Amino acid sequence: MNIKKPLAIKQPEVGKLIRELRLKTGLTQEQFAAVLGVTFPTVNRWENGRNQPSPIAMKQIEKILLEMDDRGQELLAKYSTP
């Protein structure tokens, strides 16, 4: 059985990754929250480092990154742990 390892992001960097991803996709915090099925304050807290996304939210964020062109791969490389 092949189990996919979850996206490993440097913890202090998660908020920066989310903000950069959101800006590269051209979405407001409200729009990005709607895509992920969370509230605007949740995205705001992630971006400001007050909370971390749940594992389910991280899977959705990873999916968005993988569906993007090279910009998504660049972000993955920039923020992923080796």
Rank of each mutant, 00 (worst) to 15 (best):
L23H: 13
M68A: 12
P12Y: 10
K4S: 11
A8R: 15
M1K: 06
R22I: 04
T28E: 00
Q73N: 10
P55V: 06
A33H: 12
L66A: 03
I9S: 06
R45F: 02
T39F: 03
Y79K: 07
A34I: 10
D70A: 14
L65H: 04
V14P: 05
Q73H: 13
I9D: 08
T42G: 03
K78W: 01
E74Y: 11
E13T: 02
G49W: 10
R19G: 01
L65V: 03
P55H: 04
E13L: 15
T25V: 14
P55N: 08
T28F: 09
P12R: 13
V14H: 09
L36H: 06
T28Y: 05
P53Y: 04
V38L: 12
K16F: 10
I56T: 14
I61A: 04
Q31L: 03
E74N: 13
I64Q: 10
K78M: 07
L76S: 03
L65E: 08
R71K: 14
L21E: 02
V43T: 07
Q11M: 09
T81P: 00
I18K: 08
W46K: 04
R19L: 12
T42L: 08
V43D: 06
V35F: 10
K63F: 12
D69F: 00
D69I: 01
N48Y: 07
G26T: 03
K24D: 12
Q52R: 09
I18L: 15
L17P: 04
R45G: 00
F32K: 05
P41Y: 05
A33R: 04
K24N: 13
I18G: 04
G72K: 07
R71W: 01
I61K: 05
L7W: 13
M1C: 07
A33I: 06
M58S: 09
Q73I: 07
N51L: 11
L27V: 00
S54W: 01
K78V: 09
Q29N: 05
Y79A: 03
Q60D: 11
I56C: 01
E13F: 14
K5E: 14
T25D: 03
L75C: 11
Q52P: 01
I61Y: 04
G37T: 03
Q60Y: 10
P6F: 07
G72Y: 12
I9K: 07
L65P: 08
N48Q: 14
T81M: 12
G15K: 09
L27D: 00
E62D: 15
T39M: 03
G15D: 06
G26I: 08
L65S: 06
D69W: 01
K59Q: 14
R22P: 10
N48T: 14
K59W: 00
Q52C: 02
A34M: 07
E67R: 14
L23A: 08
A33T: 06
T25K: 15
R19P: 03
D69H: 11
Q60F: 09
E74A: 08
R71L: 12
K16N: 14
K59A: 15
L75W: 12
